[in-house]
Simulated assay, not measured.
Amino acid sequence: MTTTTSISTSNPPSNPRDYVKSPDPAEVESTLTRFQEMISKYQFMSQNVERRAAGLREKLPEMRKSLDTVRFLRMRKGKASRDSGAEQDEGGDGDGLEEGSADANGMIETTYALQDTLYAHATVNTQELDSVYLWLGANVMVAYPLDEAESMLKEKLDKAKESLKAAEEDLEFIRVQTTTLEVATARVHNWDVGEKRKKKESG
């Protein structure tokens, strides 16, 4: 006999006869076993996709932070260049430089992480800053011009967002498939119990 295991997730059949063509115990058991194997496969797939999605969710904040940092450095470099040019045009002598003059000179003070709990202090001259160093993984660091660094980081961030969205869609599809299979399993099992009861009562 042929066992039917085709399932529609949008509108799963309510009649177990759509899955099992006869109450033969061997066919019922074969159908239930196949359903359980399919459920196990979807559960395995769900674990893998969930791990991938979790990794992306963990990386996204760091990727946004890196992109925001590069954009900030570009902005400060451009502002410092404009302020410096304006000062030369106005013949400013630089007297009475307060907090705002730090912007004009392009100097910023910051701290950066050496390790998870270890930070160092640094002073950066954004007027002389032409490139940044980015970790590419596997202990590899590469210098990129600011424009290229921003473009690459934005591209990677966009791809990571797309990958996360695709992973979430896959998870939803797997959940629907798993639920449908579990419902189908319950229907076949209950139908089998009813058929056995009828057979026993009919003697």
Rank of each mutant, 00 (worst) to 15 (best):
L118E: 13
T180S: 15
M107I: 10
G94S: 09
S84F: 15
G137H: 08
N139V: 00
K154F: 15
T117E: 13
Y144N: 04
G96Y: 15
D103A: 09
D83M: 13
Q115S: 15
Q177C: 12
G85W: 14
R175N: 08
W135T: 01
G106F: 01
G91S: 07
S101V: 02
E172G: 01
M107V: 11
A86D: 13
V124E: 05
E128I: 00
T111N: 06
T180I: 08
V176N: 05
M141D: 09
L97I: 07
S131R: 06
G137F: 13
A149Y: 07
Y119D: 14
E99P: 00
T123K: 13
G91W: 14
D158Q: 06
E168N: 05
S84C: 09
K154V: 06
L153I: 03
E169T: 06
N139A: 10
A138T: 00
T180F: 14
N105A: 11
G106T: 01
S131W: 02
N139Y: 11
E162S: 04
D170A: 06
G92V: 10
A102N: 02
G85P: 00
G96V: 05
T111F: 13
Q115C: 14
I108H: 08
L171M: 06
S101N: 07
V124N: 03
D130A: 07
H121N: 11
E150Q: 13
L114I: 04
E87P: 03
L181P: 05
D83G: 08
G96A: 12
S81E: 15
E99N: 02
G100C: 03
R175S: 11
L129Y: 03
Q127K: 12
E148P: 04
S84G: 11
Q127F: 04
T178F: 13
L136D: 11
A113D: 09
D116F: 11
G137A: 08
L146G: 01
V176P: 00
L134Q: 10
M152A: 13
E155S: 09
D147P: 00
E90S: 11
S163C: 05
V124G: 06
G92D: 14
